[in-house]
Amino acid sequence: MRIRGMRRSVAALAALVTVGGCTAQAVDVNSGQSRPIRIDVTATPNGKQGGEKPAGDTQDGDKPGTTAPSTSSTPPATPAPPPRTLWSRGDKGRDIREVQARLRQVAWLYDGPTGEYDDLTVQAVRGFQGKRGLPPTGETDSVTWARLLKMTREPSKWELYAYGGQPAAAPDPRCMTGRVLCISKTSRTLRWMVGGRTLTTVDVRFGSQYTPTREGVFTVYFKSRHHVSTLYDTPMPYAMFFSGGQAVHYSSDFAARGYYGASHGCVNVRDEAKIAQLFAQVRNGDKVVVYW
């Protein structure tokens, strides 16, 4: 009876595991000797606990009886690099137009994109930075630019060039000989060309859909320095007529409103100094080409 009871005790002890940490003592049911075992309580991907591993087993070159170094420690965080300046006062180009167009979208800049990082742009960037807790330097650095990108959308071509400055389109082949006012509706520019060479380029504005500017090849037939429209009773300084009542002339409205307005069919120029130079150089009989 004593031996039979001892066998029951051994069987019970073999099934008993005390999980106090990573190891426990159990009795081998075959030899009756005790040996240490390691209990892996790490959850497996299917949610079940892992199986047993004898304490003497080693993996990856671990020495018996030692604990493998932890691989779950988080390395020290690398400090973020300081913001780098992308654009600042005095910079020019298409990228500056995009900065300005995006600032207009969030109502920090009201003037149209000019392509020049001027005082108004500095003030707008400084206000945008201060509102969001960034150093108000007025320079567009990498952090400011990333924040502005998140808050805005890609500007359309209209938004980028709403106030002009678009690169002039390639000259029409009909502009390559003689003395020509070469006018592109696509880029909204006028080239003054002589012998295929561009001497001057200016922004221009055209008529609305109800009073469109005619397209084709014309000639300058009449010039009037201080002209006033008999139809609309409005000034048309430096007028160079090429098709009926349509002329190339200076427009103070274009200078003030940009492309948010339109002419009654004429080709408006907003740079008074340049139109004055053109008026002095262009002669009656010079060619005018209006094209898309």
Results as ranks from 00 to 15, higher is better:
S88Y: 12
S88I: 04
A262S: 10
L134A: 04
Q281W: 11
R97F: 14
C266W: 00
V228P: 14
R2S: 13
S156D: 02
Q100W: 00
Y117K: 09
C266H: 03
A55W: 12
R147G: 07
T140H: 07
G47H: 12
P212V: 03
R89A: 13
G65Y: 06
P155R: 03
K92Y: 08
I275W: 08
F206Y: 08
Q209N: 10
A276W: 05
R147C: 00
L149A: 12
V122Y: 12
G90V: 12
K287D: 01
S156Y: 05
N284E: 15
T152E: 14
R270V: 01
T18V: 10
C22Y: 14
K287A: 09
P237Q: 00
S31T: 15
E159D: 04
Q33V: 04
T201A: 05
T66W: 06
P81C: 03
R283M: 06
A273W: 09
T78Q: 12
I39K: 06
L190A: 02
H249S: 11
G93S: 08
R94N: 03
P235A: 04
L120T: 11
D91S: 15
R153G: 02
D172Q: 06
D40P: 05
P76K: 12
G47F: 06
A273R: 06
A12Q: 11
A80D: 01
V122L: 13
G20M: 02
S73F: 07
P173M: 02
P82K: 03
T177G: 07
P135M: 13
D253R: 06
Y163E: 07
T44H: 14
A101F: 00
A80Y: 01
W108T: 14
G130S: 13
I39Q: 07
K63Q: 05
H264R: 09
W292I: 03
G5T: 14
P75H: 08
G115E: 02
L278K: 05
V10L: 15
V248A: 00
T85S: 07
I37R: 09
T78H: 08
G127I: 10
L13V: 05
T114H: 06
G265C: 06
L148K: 09
G244P: 09
T234V: 13
H249P: 09
H226N: 15
T71Y: 04
R174S: 01
